[in-house]
């Protein structure tokens, strides 16, 4: 198994302020699989994604990637793990304001020993003509595409997307989803996407519904719909 989560539990706060965010999550993902984590606000989706990404630690349970346990990794090893295996896309683009589009993408490439070709990627992302602009000169969609470029240029094994279309309009959202779909298919990255947009589940291989910190159900989707044809 490429990725395995075993009984992940996580709580915030203490005593009367304690909130159990994750109450025992277990799931598995194969290499190249497209997973969608669905759930309403506060269901624990983002916390789960952060735990998979090694930027938050569970109170108990285990995350295993290619049989390596994240709990046994120290801070340095976790950084190395993220550097080697993960690409992260956030709802907020978090681009570096005084670097151009191209340079922002190269920030990701610099971390990899075998990055994708920047020009090809700019072309795939539709950013070639904007490559010398700085983030404040771009639309929201263009900024998110740049953020995606930064995440995927290092050819990650896993692409973690936290509400990547949350701040975008319908048309731009579809563009971004198409792009993520391409990354999944063309580069074979495992994609785990957190969303509260129910329509997006149709493009996934596996749909995981969370409610109140627990998995409500896991559905295998045999009839994937291309991002192009999604409607909401």
């Amino acid at each position: 198994m490429f990725l395995e989560l075993r009984d992940i539990k996580k709580a915030y706060g203490e005593k009367e302020n304690r909130t159990d965010v994750l109450k025992g999550i277990s799931l598995q993902a194969e290499k190249g699989e497209f997973l969608v984590l669905l759930g309403s606000s506060g269901s624990g989706k983002s916390t789960l994604l952060n735990i998979i990404g090694g930027i938050d630690r569970p109170d108990s349970g285990e995350v295993m990637i290619q049989n390596e346990k994240l709990s046994q990794m120290n801070e340095k090893q976790l950084t190395r793990y993220r550097r080697k295996h993960l690409g992260y896309i956030f709802q907020l683009y978090n681009l570096i304001p005084n670097l151009t589009v191209r340079e922002n993408i190269e920030v990701g490439a610099w971390l990899s020993s075998d990055p994708l070709d920047t020009d090809t990627l700019l072309d795939v992302l539709g950013l070639t003509e904007h490559q010398d602009k700085i983030p404040s000169q771009l639309s929201g969609g263009q900024q998110q595409r740049t953020a995606i470029g930064r995440a995927i240029i290092k050819n990650p094994d896993i692409l973690l997307c936290d509400e990547p279309t949350g701040a975008l309009d319908y048309r731009t959202s579809k563009e971004i989803l198409k792009l993520i779909e391409t990354v999944n298919q063309k580069y074979g990255s495992t994609v785990i996407m957190v969303t509260h947009n129910d329509a997006i589940r149709l493009m996934a291989d596996k749909i995981i519904r969370l409610r109140d910190g627990m998995i409500r159900d896991i559905t295998m989707n045999d009839q994937k719909v291309p991002a192009e044809k999604l409607e909401w």
């Binding site: 990404g53 930027i55 801070e75 340095k76 950084t79 190395r80 993220r82 550097r83 080697k84 993960l86 690409g87 992260y88 956030f90 907020l92 978090n94 681009l95 570096i96 304001p97 920030v107 990701g108 971390l111 953020a147 930064r150 995440a151 290092k154």
Partner: peptide
């Protein structure tokens, strides 16, 4: 902060 968070999440070391 959020840029630093993203870079750290992407694998930049402290």
């Amino acid at each position: 902060a959020s840029v630093i968070g993203s870079l750290r999440a992407a694998g930049y070391t402290k």
